[in-house]
């Protein structure tokens, strides 16, 4: 069954995520990064950021916590067994630092019906504890029919 277009604009409650320094390092190691901005405390403390910062794609870590409730949403009723991640887009405005508290909001920005599949686009906007824009992520999922 096609994903109903009436869900364009649907939002979910703001999610709060506190950025832990060791979590940042764990993520950097998972993507096999050697970048001292993410991994070296001494280097990071002397950098312009004064502390460990997260790799840009760390956005997926708090993003995953926002995407999961969408997959489980009974009203939207996505067929997750037939769902694949089609496209991804990120814009980065302010670096994520260890100790930051992030506030993210999720919204469905597009639902398209094609012959054999539906395309669902989800936007995640994130701000930090200083109300600065941190990042925008657009996750595009393809659901085969």
């Amino acid at each position: 069954m096609a994903v109903d277009k009436k869900f364009v604009g649907k939002t979910w409650p703001t999610m709060v995520y506190e950025v832990g320094k060791e979590k940042v390092k764990e993520f950097a190691k998972a993507i096999k990064s050697n970048n001292p901005y993410y991994l070296n405390d001494e280097f990071a403390s002397q950098s312009k950021y004064k502390t460990i910062v997260a790799p840009p794609t760390f956005a997926v870590v708090f993003g995953a916590k926002l995407i999961e409730p969408i997959f489980m949403d009974k009203e939207l009723n996505l067929n997750v067994a037939m769902l694949v991640h089609g496209e991804q887009e990120f814009e980065f405005y302010t670096m994520v630092k260890a100790g930051d508290i992030l506030y993210s909001n999720t919204r469905i920005i597009g639902i398209e019906h094609k012959e054999k599949l539906d395309v669902v686009a989800i936007e995640i906007m994130t701000k930090n504890q200083y109300n600065q824009d941190v990042s925008k992520g657009i996750y595009t999922f393809v659901v085969r029919k």
């Binding site: 970048n35 790799p55 089609g86 887009e89």
Partner: peptide, 20 residues
């Protein structure tokens, strides 16, 4: 990470997109 390893300061990466 290949981009930020090349440019150094990860704050210089402003956008990235792809299709899987």
């Amino acid at each position: 990470d290949a981009v930020t390893t090349w440019i150094g300061d990860p704050g210089r990466l402003k956008k990235i997109k792809c299709r899987f």
